[in-house]
Amino acid sequence: MNIFRLVGDLSHLAALIILLLKIWKSRSCAGVSGKSQIMFAMVYMTRYLDLFTTFVSVYNSVMKVVFLLFSFVTVYLIYFKFKATYDGNHDTFRVEFLVVPVAGLAVLVNHEFSFLEILWTFSIYLESVAILPQLFMISKTGCEAETITSHYLFALGIYRALYIANWIFRYYMEGFFDFIAIVAGCVQTILYCDFFYLYVTKVWKGKRLTIPA
């Protein structure tokens, strides 16, 4: 473990908490893409199956359970409890155009052709594009993202950017190099760059975040 990965994981946890609190406190999931949240739940389900087969550390197991729990609760709130506030008309990204190619790529490009390893690879690839429906939704719904949603996106984007620092650190310190995770992590972070620019230039100056359509 290193400081980059620890801060990254805490930023990831903060993002999940920010989103959950936003939906729970406002009793509304307006502006939140249910499709992205379903994809995040898929990411954690397919990545954390080793929860039962491999023990890495208490921290690792606890965080996996927390991420799984929070993502399931978030999906539950969006599609069941606060279903009436779900903005389905604007959450129209065709996720099958993401899931199918990602699944195909996971079968073709992976470290080892085994069940758990292909699911892990699928989850890594899926996570790098899972935020697209959310960014697409913000760019469609009049470009206005609630400030809290932009904080959620910022925390979520920063987590993977910190993981890149973690991979650089681990490469020089431990000779650790996971090509698949690094490439997908860079793609994921690049997808946020446009948002990061808008977040810093707008939200930090107290303005509302708008993503040009």
Binding site: R47, M63, F67, D178
Partner: peptide, 10 residues
């Protein structure tokens, strides 16, 4: 060990 790769990151 999960396959060849032990994934120790979240």
């Amino acid at each position: 060990r999960v396959g060849i790769y032990m994934h120790d990151e979240l």
